[in-house]
Design a protein around this nucleic acid. Structure first.
Lengths: 140, 140
DNA sequence: GTGTTTTAATACTCTTCTATCTTAATTATC
DNA sequence: GATAATTAAGATAGAAGAGTATTAAAACAC
């Protein structure tokens, strides 16, 4: 459903939000803790800095940090930034132009699912998930 | 969400169900009508004959046909056969062993989505979709 | 039984995703 | 300024999905 890259990005962002002690978190730390290839993760997070979701700083004490409080960052934004938009708009059967006027046979039922996924991703914030990780000690 | 192969398989099966005039339908006909590469489609449909969802017959007047009435064939079966099972069981964040005891931070909300998708696919039959195509002239 | 239609099986190519490697470029600290 | 820490960027390699090509095998028709 989501690509590896997107999942890595989401997990990394949750990781940063879950630790509030330091402003800039080096990517190397995230990559070690979450067992994600450093260089791969770097490229993914670059997409998030380019979208001004994160800010980065080179040099000692550098790393990445939020450019905006994590309770204002929604999972849907991360997916958009990394995966590319339209993920939640595609037809299940991949038919171009499938819509209300010219639906595919699964259109109606799939619309229900799509709306649900989309709204979940649009209402879920990073800080919300980070809270579960730090307070309820959930896995990351 | 679903791979191309799976989508092609589903569409092909719906196509066969939508035309009741002949028992065996040659793959070449399906591939032309649905604009799917013949050889690629052949490989996909082989997986369905191996699972005894379809039967095939070589030679003139040959082709593929249902091994069981299409109102007894569920979309979930097709997905399983082509995509491999466990599609609807995976964790959104790809964490191995994510479950009720050791959940990931998105576990609870994603479970809701998964259950819904799964039950939709499990209750939807091929004949149901074929009916929409033939009666309501929906796209395929 | 020869030829034609059709699926089966295998091997190969192409593209995209995933990941790695190398080399900059930038910043802080001493 | 020199050095170390750290992201940025590009080039390359591996893996998997998507698609193509070739050949074999089966069934029917004549």
């Amino acid at each position: 459903m989501l690509s590896n890259a997107t999942v890595y990005g989401i997990r990394a962002v949750i990781y940063i939000a879950a630790k509030k002690d330091r402003k800039y978190v080096p990517i190397s730390e995230i990559s070690e803790k979450l067992k994600i290839s450093f260089h791969f993760l770097t490229k993914i997070l670059q997409k998030l800095t380019q979208r001004n979701i994160l800010i980065s700083n080179r040099g000692p004490q550098g790393g990445i940090a939020f450019n905006r409080p994590p309770d204002k960052i929604y999972i849907a934004e991360l997916v958009d930034a990394i995966e590319g938009a339209d993920l939640f708009d595609r037809c299940v059967l991949g038919l171009p132009g499938c819509g209300v006027e010219t639906p595919c046979p699964m259109h109606d039922q799939w619309t229900i699912v799509k709306v649900q996924i989309k709204s979940q991703f649009e209402k879920t914030t990073v800080s919300e998930l980070a809270k579960k990780v730090s307070e309820r000690n959930e896995r990351l």
